[in-house]
Design a protein around this nucleic acid. Structure first.
Length: 600
RNA sequence: GUCGGGGUAGCUCAGCGGUAGAGCAAACGGCUCAUAAUCGUUAGGUCGCGGGUUCGAAUCCCGCCUCCGACACCA
């Protein structure tokens, strides 16, 4: 019985190109998980998009003389191209500036408001004297009243560590243009989180399968919940759907409140785009569906507290009707089943920092190296359980000594020999005990590796696949079919047949991690069709006349299955090429030099 | 400051109550079909520091040092 799996991937913020630390945190892990579940026969819906509202985008726009929408358009394009080139198999990668997203966000807001979960409160806020926009606390600098540090921020002083309010600062000034901020009273809307505290506490306490840090962090956070403001004084964002605010240009829904709603709105858009407008309910209003969220650790609270509170609030008297109440209308919206948070990647021992030049963008990386080489590194050495460091030396080493040497070489020596000697899958003689033992061990990987992936232990899963590849290398070294063939061609054919069967199975096991090379191997082995691909861009026009490009794909045509694939005797092999490129050690110094040149 | 998570072989990391593990790097040997790739053997660690619980602690508890993150108007 296929399961419904929602793979909900954190929404990259569209204020610039994304670096490899970002995709290490949410992109690659989510894609491994989604590809595996599709191969295993489950119904996967993987959704995300660019997060395009909020203050930082308006600041970039001002600096570059563009409108916020132009900034969002530009970086949506760059980011979607990156994700496509990395092979991230989204069912829908859309944007938060679609008409659909605005409507769903406003639906959620209205529903919560009508149930009393959204409160109004007067607050004192800081505004830019020049633009009239809100100045978030962190965009205000001044002298710390406690220690006298002159570059304290409105939220805290980095020198003495004190928590501050912007009004505490002496000589406050805007970090953006240096002008002194204006403080005035303004009305804001607050999500009444304390109203959900008990339900959240009980729900999270039951989630014993979450990674311990996510669960304990969230439980701790609940102890002191306060109503959280969900509107901002901005002209860029989803309008507040209340009569007195609908036509005002100075107040919008807070970017985080709408970004998490994106998981739901994108699912609804996906269903609409493919002409089955109620299909999203199979994931959202099906109590057997399981939702997996993938993100960096800085996003935990939004996915374990705030979004679940929004979902509980919307669902609490029975349903989210959406644009049309349907068959599942009496069922609540599904809460997260697991919230998978990655730690952080650092770059040559330092924090990634675009402004300081400590960075390698996905786009630049992929212009010089293969996507699978990056996917390999980010999985085997990425921040799955703790912060890890990316270094170019380690990237080259992992690529050359592990990916190329173990798996690439196994494929190459096997295919080269078989293609040259037989030209096709050879007919084996009787299998010996050692042959069968190897086949059993390798094919056992489907169960073992599959269980690890389901358990979101990707590093262990890939390590196991590599171990199995090394086992096949050992087998070949012991059997020496290139010698045996002189005296016993049938035995040599059997050995190569066994190796080929192992390679063909490993091809599937490596597919979630290394989809591009697995597809090429699939073709060298003489097969046609896609194991798992391809991705495509499509353009959709909404009722307001605006169109947007989405990343999607028809993954129903995948022919791969998470099980030992058949390998027909006599199938003609194609001319093989090495799967991976060995990298010259020189690139380490070249890349470090490139980074030094960009340092600010 | 408060809260959370790290500190394990030269390097990158796994293990998280029962005689210290992997990969790479190192040394030696085998093989030479394969992108000089592979295969085997060896060597290498008082598991951050100090104390405690336990028959037994890298693993649990307390204190300290140190790194990273969150702390609610950055996203």
């Amino acid at each position: 019985m296929p399961q419904h799996i929602l793979v909900a991937v954190a929404w990259p913020y569209a204020n610039g190109p994304r670096h490899i630390g970002h995709v290490a945190g949410f992109g690659v892990p989510a894609d491994i998980f989604a590809r595996y579940h599709r191969l295993a026969g489950n119904r996967v819906l993987m959704v995300s998009g660019t997060d395009e509202h909020g203050t930082p985008i308006t600041i970039v726009a001002e600096r570059e003389g563009l409108t916020p929408r132009e900034v969002a358009d530009r970086y949506n394009r760059v980011i979607a191209d990156d994700l496509h080139n990395l092979g991230l198999s989204y069912d829908l990668f859309t944007r938060t500036t679609t008409l659909n997203h605005y409507q769903v966000t406003q639906d959620v807001f209205r529903t919560l408001f009508s149930k009393g979960y959204i409160l109004r409160q007067e607050t004192l806020g800081a505004f830019s004297a020049t633009t009239g926009r809100t100045l978030p606390d962190r965009y205000i600098e001044g002298t710390c009243p406690i220690c006298g540090y002159t570059e304290a921020r409105g939220d805290q002083c980095d020198n003495c560590g004190s928590q501050l309010d912007p009004t505490d600062l002496i000589n406050p000034r805007s970090k953006i243009d240096g002008s002194p901020p204006v403080f005035k009273t303004t009305e804001h809307f607050f999500l009444d989180l304390p109203a959900f505290a008990d339900r959240l506490q009980q729900w999270i306490a039951k989630q014993e399968h979450w990674r311990p840090n996510v669960r304990s962090f969230s439980l701790n956070f609940i102890k002191d919940l306060k109503p959280r403001p969900i509107t901002r004084d901005l002209d860029w964002g989803v309008p507040i759907p209340l009569p007195e605010y609908e036509h005002r240009d100075d107040k919008r829904i807070y970017v985080w409140f709408d970004a998490v709603i994106g998981y739901l709105s994108a699912s609804i858009e996906w269903a609409h785009n493919r002409g089955t407008p109620d299909a999203w309910r199979d994931w959202w209003q099906n109590r057997y569906a399981r939702h997996f969220y993938f993100m960096g650790k800085d996003n935990i609270v939004f996915h374990t507290i705030i979004w679940p509170a929004q979902l509980m609030g919307v669902s609490s008297d029975g349903y989210y009707a959406g644009s049309a109440a349907g068959a599942f209308a009496e069922v609540s919206l599904q809460l997260p089943y697991n919230v998978v948070s990655s730690e952080f990647l650092t770059m040559e021992g330092k924090k990634f920092s675009s402004s300081r030049g400590v960075v390698i963008y996905v786009k630049d990386f992929l212009s010089r190296y293969d996507a699978d080489a990056l996917r390999y590194y980010l999985t085997i050495a990425g921040p799955e359980n703790q912060d890890t460091d990316f270094t170019w030396a380690e990237f080259v080493r992992r690529n050359n000594d592990e990916l190329v040497a173990t798996w690439g070489n196994l494929v190459n020596r096997t295919l080269t020999n078989v293609h040259r000697t037989f030209g096709a899958v050879p007919r084996p003689g009787a299998l010996q005990e050692g042959d069968q033992r190897l086949l059993d061990e390798v094919e056992g990987g489907f169960a073992g590796i599959g269980a690890m992936i389901e358990d979101v232990r990707f590093k262990a899963a890939l390590t196991e696949a590599m171990r199995l590849a090394a086992q096949v290398n050992t087998y070949l070294s012991e059997q020496e079919p290139w010698k045996v063939i002189k005296d016993d061609p049938e035995r040599a054919a059997t050995i190569w047949y066994v190796a080929l069967r192992c390679v063909n199975s490993l091809k599937i096991m490596f597919t979630p991690f290394l989809p591009f090379s697995s597809q090429r191997l699939h073709e060298y082995l003489g097969f046609d069709g896609y194991i798992a691909g391809p991705l495509e861009f499509k353009e959709y026009t909404e009722d307001d006349g605006r169109s947007h490009r989405v990343l999607t794909g028809n993954y129903g045509c995948w022919i791969g299955r998470w099980e030992p694939p058949r390998l027909p005797v006599g199938q003609t092999l194609r001319q093989p090429e090495p799967l991976f490129k060995k990298l010259d050690e020189k690139i380490v110094e070249e890349e470090l030099e490139r980074m030094r040149a960009g340092l600010k």
